[in-house]
Design a protein around this nucleic acid. Structure first.
Lengths: 107, 107
DNA sequence: TTCATATGTAATAATTTTATTACAGGTGTA
DNA sequence: TACACCTGTAATAAAATTATTACATATGAA
């Protein structure tokens, strides 16, 4: 996970973690890396939806994906977890208050 | 903040923290307790909206409100921060995986 | 009485997030 | 060729969150 220097970054990470599927993805990937289709089956969700969740986690560098070609020649996309540690308390939040934007999100 | 023993509790707290106004509220209340109308002015939002945010924070015991009568006889509602500490990492998440519900939220 | 302050909430609208459906394209094997 | 895998995304729908508007009620002071 990238260093959190700004309130907006902290918020971005918290948003990424605020979903049961995304927490589950972290738990699964902690055991071992996994490729997208298999991960979708394990979570019981569609690939398009999984991509959405993976994107949010990857945006904040909690997971990372890369392509690989399997032994039988198939193009696979594996995701793996990036260990992280976020000591969340009121001190951290207060310290980042000035770099926290209240405006709506763009894009 | 209440003890986090279940994945659903963790998620609930993360959701409560996933909003810039709510992070700001924590930062403001860390300095000192405050009453609702004044807090709304400081944040630049309406009271109805503030109530919504306060409710989400109070639900997970990050803040607590109580009524008080001011010197000049007005009924005031003050909120104060409850110090908390959440060491967020993949270990915590993996450990709570089994008590994490994927279903939609009720209510 | 009128004004300024305070709390509280119901109803609705706007926006964002989450989820689904429908595609297209690739490789290896039967 | 047809089938069973795989990746990737656009378009749309559904659901949840966030925000606004409009009220009602109460107190003290001018």
């Amino acid at each position: 996970m990238k260093d959190i220097k700004y309130g907006d970054d902290l918020l971005h990470v918290l948003e990424a973690l605020s979903n049961p599927y995304r927490l589950k993805i972290i738990a699964v990937l902690k055991q071992d890396r996994q490729y997208v289709s298999q991960l979708a089956r394990e979570l019981g969700i569609s690939r398009p939806l999984l991509y959405l969740h993976l994107k949010k986690l990857e945006e904040v560098d909690i997971i990372k994906g890369h392509h690989e070609v399997s032994e039988d020649g198939k193009a696979m996309k594996y995701y793996e977890l990036t260990p992280f540690n976020l000591p969340l308390d009121e001190e951290l939040i207060a310290g980042l208050e000035n770099s926290l934007t209240m405006k709506k999100k763009n894009k």
